[in-house]
Simulated assay, not measured.
Amino acid sequence: MIGKLKGTVDSQGTDFVILDVHGVGYIVYCSTRTLRALPPPGEAASLAIDTQMREDMIRLYGFASDQERDWFRLLQGVQGVGSKVALAILGVLPTGDLALAIARGDKTAVARSPGVGPKLAARIVAELKDKTATLGGGEMPGEVLASTPALPLQADDAVAALVNLGYGRPQVMGAVADAVSLLGDEAGTAALIRHGLKRLSS
């Protein structure tokens, strides 16, 4: 099984890259987001790999990070989500945005992905809501934190308290953000925790 490839970008197609590793050209299927992030032909690149074997073929899927690969695998555990749909979702939503959307129950965000209708989006959110914390320690990538509205200082205390109770950080971030939106920036830590717990248990 191949878990990682490091080589030189040879060329790209609409949904794949050919990575030259010591003279061997590997066809690696990637999300549009990963393809856009790759350097131009002739430059070095490294991809985390998921190897899928069937009776008639072996197919390689490449990712910018181990966390993205883990999300790819997790998504395919949902009925109706195959490799093509999983890549489409990851092409539209960075892993942190996907975790936040699932934590908030935001079916609309997930449904923006090609091939994902409202029913499938609802199934993805429902089935993965309690599993996102297992990915990368449940941390939110910096790109998502940077795009998330700044929360008051007491919200950090509320997040820490809820994480200590065993909830995953992505779910907690979404719950506390919702609490701040509802109660306002002046809400105290206790109130944020109380409303956060209500959101997490719903």
Rank of each mutant, 00 (worst) to 15 (best):
D70M: 12
I27S: 15
S83L: 07
L153C: 05
L162G: 12
A160C: 11
G62N: 10
M140C: 09
M173N: 09
A103F: 05
L162D: 13
D15R: 01
L98R: 03
L35S: 07
K119H: 14
I193F: 06
V163Q: 10
Y29S: 15
K129D: 02
V116L: 07
L145S: 02
V78A: 00
G3C: 10
C30T: 14
L151V: 01
T134Q: 15
R194V: 05
T134N: 09
R123E: 01
Q52E: 15
D156R: 13
K129F: 01
E186K: 08
R54I: 11
A88W: 00
Y29K: 14
A44C: 01
D66I: 10
A101V: 01
V78H: 01
L183I: 08
T95G: 10
A187W: 09
R104W: 07
L5S: 12
A121N: 11
A86S: 05
R59Y: 04
E68G: 11
G115F: 05
L192S: 03
G142E: 14
P39Y: 02
D20K: 09
P118R: 05
Q12F: 09
D15T: 02
L120G: 09
K131T: 00
R69S: 07
R59A: 15
D10C: 03
D66R: 15
A111Q: 11
L75H: 04
K84R: 11
V176C: 07
Q154V: 09
A99R: 00
E127R: 00
I2Q: 14
K4G: 09
F16T: 02
D156Q: 13
G117Y: 02
A146M: 10
G117A: 04
V28R: 08
G96F: 05
K198D: 08
A191L: 08
A126F: 14
L153D: 12
M1D: 14
L87E: 03
K107Y: 04
G91V: 00
R194Q: 13
N164Q: 10
E43S: 14
R59L: 13
L100I: 04
R36V: 12
P118L: 04
P141K: 01
A191Q: 13
D156I: 05
A64N: 13
K131Y: 00
E127L: 00
E55I: 09
N164I: 05
E68S: 10
S65D: 07
D56N: 14
G42V: 02
Q12N: 07
V144A: 12
S201G: 08
V144S: 12
S65I: 06
A86I: 00
R33I: 03
L75G: 04
